[in-house]
Amino acid sequence: MTRAVLIAFARLFITVLLAVTFVFIILRVSGDPARALLPLDAPEEQIEAVRAEWDLDKPLPQQYLTYILKLASGDFGLSMNDRQPALQVVAEKIPATVLLMGTGLVIAFTVGSALGLIAASFRGRAPDRLIMSLAIFVHSIPSFLFGILLILLFAVALRLLPSGGGPSPLHLLMPAAVIGLSQAGVVARFVRSSTLEVLAQPYITVAGLKPLPRWYFIRAHVLPGSALPLLTLFGFSLGGIIAGAAIVESVFAWPGVGRFLVFSVARRDVAVVQTIVVLVATMMAFANLMTDLLYAFFDPRVRTS
């Protein structure tokens, strides 16, 4: 068991290292940050000066090595934009994004699980078909379009909610709904199929023969089996939500990491982009590690093997 955890952590480290390397390469082959930072008509000497200041004139391997070593010591570099430590500028934006993603996840998993269970218990009948059609619809509509539709309806036409900005509970409602509902569709489909699969198991027939109250039968025999696959989905959908956050935050002008990422990429703020990607990659890898550990915790078949 401890060995398995150690291996998982080693894998986490490798994942993060790969992500960091990938971003380092992408940002350096896709354009000159020094030119992006300065006005178009800046003289060549000024560009060279900026390059020298940011180590951009050194050979790539050296830049890479310096960067990795600095990262390892917790130094994420200075934002090129305002010369603040990149980690600090990014950290300021994290709470807003965590709030948004957390609310989105809660919506996704509560709404999705409930709808999935309803669909499963009405298998093949009208509620099932309605829920499954809705699930496909909300998941296939692009989130920026969904966001704009919500803004048109609740902010422009009904004037109930602010169209953007934040962070406050009122500002939170629409972006969290966009994130949550599109993932809720996936969750609902997952819960429906895993529930139906569990209901077809022989052990459900056997348990159904015991004199157990209905609520206990569902809680003790149906739900655990049908909820287990959700752990896998959780790891996956976290990625989807993070990717979606960049778009949704931009649409709703939510002051979070996602919008900041889009902004920083446009400005070629290498240090900030790298910082965000390292954080996201670490979080993703960590979420997957947690998924595996939770599986071992909940499923005795995984635990003992």
């Binding site: 198991q201 022989p202 052990y203 027939t205 056997v206 348990a207 003790a220 025999h221 655990p224 089996g225 287990l228 909940f298 499923d299 005795p300 078949r301």
Partner: peptide, 12 residues
């Protein structure tokens, strides 16, 4: 039933 292992809840 025929399949005793399948007739028992695997996670309990």
């Amino acid at each position: 039933f025929q399949d005793p292992t399948g007739g028992l809840n695997p996670i309990r």
